[in-house]
Amino acid sequence: MKITGKVWKYGDDVNTDVIFPGKYTYTIKERSEMAKVALEDLDPEFTQNAKAGDIIVGGKNWGCGSSREQAVSCLKERGIGAIIAKSFARIYYRNCFNEGLPIIISPDAVEAIEAGDEVTVDFDSGKVVTARGEFPFPPYPDFVKGLIEDGGLIPHVKKSLGLK
């Protein structure tokens, strides 16, 4: 699998409150509506203009704070192809696999990539490919590979329970 897209770049410790504000947690139920407010309190330009296939690049500890899964759902539904960061907060990390949103940990790639770059994430070869260089990233732990292959936790559980 390969994903190519335009980069939106942010800093360290981007928290789930600015990705999906708490005031919407019980008023917005549809995923399509979640997508419309993604990153509203961080970057209104993203909220207005992000396109399917775009890639987010963040610093350390992306997704810290609340466990709210909508902070992943809103980006997945928006069509974001992948998030590349120096590190991820742990609940967010799990939520991404559970939602089927690919994430890459690559401090070197984050340092090199600039906002607006076009980058390709090549999952088969395990590399982030950019005009500024290529950056290998470690393979996912075996345990989560199954989740990704099945498209997220819920399809994975259905499959493991023999349900359609």
């Binding site: 559970n98 819920i154 329970l161």
Partner: peptide, 20 residues
């Protein structure tokens, strides 16, 4: 420890959760 919504739904269904 805290978890997300999908993971809680799966825990209710299976009675299991993974941890590193």
């Amino acid at each position: 420890t805290g978890i997300g919504r999908s993971e809680m739904a799966a825990a209710w269904a299976t009675g299991q959760i993974w941890f590193k």
